[in-house]
Design a binder for these strands. Structure first.
Length: 598
DNA sequence: GTAGGGTTAG
């Protein structure tokens, strides 16, 4: 066991420099002076590079006598700040493996690393270790665990832990509140975060603890609301913030401009942008990126390009986001050659391409049917040592299936796993959808079974896709079997699932079954939408059951479901049936939307 | 020495 030492590093440095330690030092001779400089300057300011970190760690680990645990904590904390949590964890275990001493802080850093990697279970295991070693968890420990629960979307457990900590007499730190609010916002619970925030700003003491909202808490909520598409609410919160004399900065404006332009409220977005400039807040590279992205999504690629020129003129250096966004903008317009040109010029302008640049361009090629060009880019990225991501593979798989190249897709899926890239739920959706659309239903069923066996969480969307494939492949019985197996699996059919099944029954002439399902879904609390209505009405229409269609149209009107183009063409068809135009015309209801009624 | 904020891709 390496003895724990309280001797400060400076004395090591002094001893080393005076040469007194030279006889016991192992080669290569450690440089305590430079270690201390490294810890104090680079680690504290967070300016370390992961590539150097591993080397420093090796040096530290083999110094004789060993640096104190606090130096390792400083170092591990700095590595954690670079978000290389896997490295933190492996370094911790290397310390443990040689019996190096660790302390409470080391364990807190370890918990935070596990929690940030969505491994809250391991986080709690480390908590067990903390207690076993006789330490007491502190606010930092619990804050990390709350974050861990939140990133795994265990919202109620996180709130419960928060309440528990207050009950136990811990005073949440401002960062604890921040973690809770941020976690809620990032998991699509911004409104819940907002309620919490409002309670706090009223000066109400929540869970016995006062808290004053600040720029950061407002910023997280405004951004969260924007991301959930609740932009009007976000604007209200923004105004409320200003009323409280908390002054928005470039970040808050950026969130708002982004949210509003994503919601298509381009004029409002522009107004906030102008307000920001009027306030003397300088747009930064991120602001420009958001604007460029908005223009690209609007199809205004020329304007977006001009904005790039403008930002360069203003001395704001475009980054990889800027180029990637513009590249994607070109691809969206089908101008993949322009995107390629940008891709080439990026390197010339000294901007490093990244995996995302490749993904965007590969996607651009695949979308316009130039799958071979996409493929050779994939080969190029491998050759240049860029590690393809799950998105790279998903993009190529989608394209291969669309071209009907099932064998190539299967081969690529194998390659993906050999590369160590873990498929995600989109990958499985693509595979299942691809199998179904290419009439490989046996493969689809086999994959479903494999996924279930390996404990993959299968979503209702995946089943929708397979059930649809089975229906369209004429295997209605298998589809029905799969449909009824959903409930025991704990999956709730959605309006899409019902619509697929209803479509299947209708196509098979089993209108009674279709209608029963249609009636049943509502009883189960799943309400038909315009697609469901169109589907079943189409069934009755094709079966020359006009009264049923009329009946359903009336139901649809009662439910204030707006007809779409399919509905209209159905009605036209109905009116031309049996020469009973006028008879049916009188029965067609008037549709109104809820907003009409107000 | 450890815990909280904004932009891009399938």
């Amino acid at each position: 066991m390496v003895p724990r030492t309280s001797v400060h590093l400076a004395s090591y440095a002094a001893a080393a420099e005076s040469g007194k330690l030279s006889s016991i030092l192992v080669a290569p001779r450690p440089n305590y002076g430079s270690l201390e400089k490294f810890l104090k300057n680079d680690c504290k300011s967070g300016k370390i590079h992961i590539k150097d970190a591993v080397g420093h760690f090796d040096n530290m680990l083999h110094m004789q006598p060993p640096p104190p645990t606090s130096s390792f904590n400083l170092f591990l904390g700095a590595v954690a700040k670079t978000k290389h949590y896997e490295d933190v964890i492996s370094m911790y275990y290397r310390m443990v493996a040689i019996n190096y001493s660790t302390d409470f802080i080391t364990l807190n850093i370890l918990i935070n690393s596990f929690c940030s990697l969505k491994q809250v279970g391991f986080g709690f295991a480390v908590l067990g270790g903390i207690l076993k070693r006789g330490y007491s968890p502190n606010v930092v420990t619990i804050t990390s665990l709350i974050k861990g629960l939140l990133v795994e979307k265990k919202i109620n457990e996180a709130v419960r832990l928060f309440k528990k900590m207050v009950e136990l007499g811990y005073r949440p730190h401002i960062k604890t509140w921040g973690t809770l609010i941020n976690g809620l916002c990032r998991t699509g619970n911004s409104e819940r975060a907002l309620l919490l925030h409002q309670e706090m700003s009223k000066g109400n003491v929540l869970f016995g603890v006062p808290f004053r909202p600040n720029l950061i808490s407002y910023s997280m909520i405004i951004d969260g609301l924007c991301k959930e598409g609740l932009v009007d609410k976000a604007v209200k919160v923004f105004l409320d913030m200003k009323e409280k004399r908390i002054y928005p900065d470039v970040v808050v404006y950026c969130s708002l401009v982004h949210g509003l332009s994503d919601a298509g409220k381009w004029e409002e977005a522009k107004a906030f942008f102008n307000e920001m400039v009027d306030q003397g807040i300088r747009p930064n590279v991120v602001t420009f990126n958001v604007l460029i992205n908005a223009l690209c999504k609007e199809g205004k690629i020329e304007e977006a390009s001009r904005l790039l020129d403008l930002m360069v003129q203003r001395g704001e250096k475009p980054d990889s986001f800027t180029y990637n966004t513009l590249m994607d903008g070109f691809c969206l317009e089908g101008k993949v050659d322009n995107a390629r040109h940008l891709f080439v010029s990026m390197a010339a302008k000294g901007e490093e391409r990244d995996v995302i640049s490749y993904n965007i361009l590969i996607n651009g090629y695949c979308k316009c049917g130039r799958i071979d060009d996409g493929w050779s880019l994939y080969k190029e990225m491998l050759q240049k040592d860029y590690k393809p991501t799950v998105i790279t593979f998903n993009t190529l798989l989608t394209a291969l299936f669309r071209e009907g190249k099932v064998g190539d897709a299967q081969e690529l899926f194998g390659e993906m796993q050999r590369c160590g890239v873990t498929p995600n739920s989109s990958t499985f959706n693509i595979l299942l959808d691809g199998f179904c659309k290419n009439n490989c239903l046996a493969e689809a069923m086999e994959l479903i079974q494999l996924l279930e066996k390996t404990g993959h969480e299968l979503t209702i969307e995946i089943f929708n896709c397979v059930i649809d494939g089975l229906c369209k492949g004429g295997k209605l019985e298998d589809a029905t079997k799969l449909f009824v197996s959903l409930y025991p699996k704990g999956l709730v059919p959605t309006v899409v699932t019902y619509s697929i099944m209803i479509h299947g029954f209708c196509k098979n002439g089993q209108l009674e079954k279709a209608n029963n399902l249609f009636l049943e879904m509502e009883k189960k609390g799943c309400f038909p939408n315009v697609v469901t209505f169109n589907t079943i009405m189409r069934g009755f229409c094709d079966n020359n059951d006009a009264p049923q269609v009329v009946d359903l149209l009336q139901k649809m009107a009662e439910k204030h479901i707006s007809p779409d183009l399919s509905t209209i063409s159905l009605v036209v068809e109905l009116l031309s049936k049996d020469g009973k135009f006028y008879e049916y015309l009188n029965l067609i209801p008037t549709f109104s939307t809820r907003s009409d009624e107000k």
